[in-house]
């Protein structure tokens, strides 16, 4: 029987992040790459959770739903997918298969 691997997202181990925010605007500086990234609230929320622990997509969506109860679950799922792709392409997050 085939086992489908679940992707876990985690902060890249080499990243050393420093945060700065103004109201709902965020920037994060990665000391290792020297890159500074501008983040939306959702990007910042997801990245912050991933700095604490690796997660699959599902608990990230659940956490976001708790933070924004009025949001639509389907829309948030799509949004988290997109945010994870962007964080991965920025070199802040990588994917491991369980």
């Amino acid at each position: 029987m085939a086992v489908v691997a679940t992707p876990f997202y985690r902060l890249r181990t080499v990243c050393r992040l420093h945060w700065k925010s103004w109201n709902d605007e965020y920037v994060v500086f990665d000391e290792t790459s020297g890159q500074t990234h501008q983040l939306s609230s959702v990007h910042a929320f997801v990245l912050h959770l991933l700095t604490e622990n690796p997660h699959t997509q599902s608990p990230l969506v659940s956490a976001l739903l708790l933070a924004i109860p009025s949001a639509d679950a389907f829309t948030l799922t799509e949004q988290v997918q997109s945010v994870l792709r962007e964080l991965e392409s920025s070199g802040l997050v990588d994917v491991v298969l369980s």
């Binding site: 700065k20 103004w22 605007e25 965020y26 920037v27 500074t36 501008q38 983040l39």
Partner: peptide
């Protein structure tokens, strides 16, 4: 204009 974007532009 956005402070975060201004910071990136100054960088």
């Amino acid at each position: 204009r956005s402070k975060a974007n201004s910071m990136l532009e100054l960088g």
